[in-house]
């Protein structure tokens, strides 16, 4: 445990001033910013409903969970892995008296934290935008800002995203070429857009659709528990495999 804490501390320092962290802040701000500007310039098109959760929060959640979250998960895991792939840091890291499994576990936890940071930024920005609309628009003045509702759904989406993060984490560290994890990420998003049309149980368990289903089917635990549990198993298997393989 002490080794894992030391590795976490080292990994958290490594991500300072990285593109991955900047992206985790910028991507959700961009999404909320675009929808906010659309709401300001064309309020009738965006706010057909007077309910903020239906008019503003739901489109954000759908876009986030189906496209942007899987997309930034692919980019962030690739960028974080590239920190050590770029100058082949593995020799330096593995020559230290720390178990490789601790190093990879710390990398996985940091990747999840950065991706979830993006979700938190999205939440904060969306709440701020909705509060702004409520304050400035008479039509939306009666609607409550859905703080709890949005927070709960984003947490569900984040937990359900563990499987896709674990897969991308494994790919990004296993293959030095960034095309592999990004290719898997893009293929996953395309498959999700196709699969989300069918509201079957199988579709809700697909790694790239699970976050969207978890955020939409607020009372169903299937798209939440199973991807999260499988995600943890995949992450443990990834750490074990990466720790055992030879890095030449």
């Amino acid at each position: 445990m002490r080794e894992l804490i030391a590795a976490l501390s080292a990994e958290s320092l490594k991500i300072h001033r990285t593109l991955a962290v900047r992206l985790a802040v910028a991507a959700p701000l961009l999404l909320v910013g675009l929808l906010t500007s659309a709401g300001i310039t064309s309020p009738n098109a965006i706010f057909r409903s007077t309910d903020l959760s239906a008019a503003f929060a739901r489109p954000i959640l759908t876009l986030w969970t189906l496209i942007l979250l899987p997309m930034i998960a692919a980019i962030i895991t690739t960028l974080l892995a590239d920190l050590d792939h770029r100058e082949h840091h593995w020799d330096q890291l593995f020559a230290l008296p720390v178990r490789r499994s601790s190093i990879f576990a710390a990398k996985g936890l940091i990747a999840v934290t950065v991706i979830w940071l993006a979700s938190f930024v999205l939440f904060a920005a969306a709440i701020a935008a909705m509060a702004g609309f409520k304050w400035t628009s008479h039509r939306l003045a009666a609607s409550a800002v859905p703080v709890g509702w949005m927070f709960r759904l984003l947490i569900r989406a984040d937990v359900a995203s563990l499987l896709l993060i674990a897969i991308l984490f494994w790919c990004s560290l296993r293959w030095r070429n960034f095309v592999v994890p990004l290719g898997v990420g893009v293929a996953g998003i395309i498959s999700a857009i196709i699969m989300v049309q069918s509201r079957s149980v199988a579709a809700s368990l697909w790694p790239w659709t699970a976050p969207a289903f978890a955020a939409n089917l607020a009372r169903s635990t299937t798209p939440l528990i199973i991807p999260a549990a499988v995600g943890i198993i995949v992450a443990v298997a990834a750490c074990s495999h990466l720790a055992r393989r030879e890095w030449r």
Partner: peptide, 26 residues
């Protein structure tokens, strides 16, 4: 150990590079 070319994190300062290793070494 210093094996082959030096592998450093270019976005971090020299001191931060050492700090990463220091945290792992304790």
């Amino acid at each position: 150990a210093l094996v082959e070319s030096p592998s450093l994190y270019p976005h971090l300062t020299g001191r931060e590079n050492l700090e990463v290793a220091r945290r792992l070494l304790g």
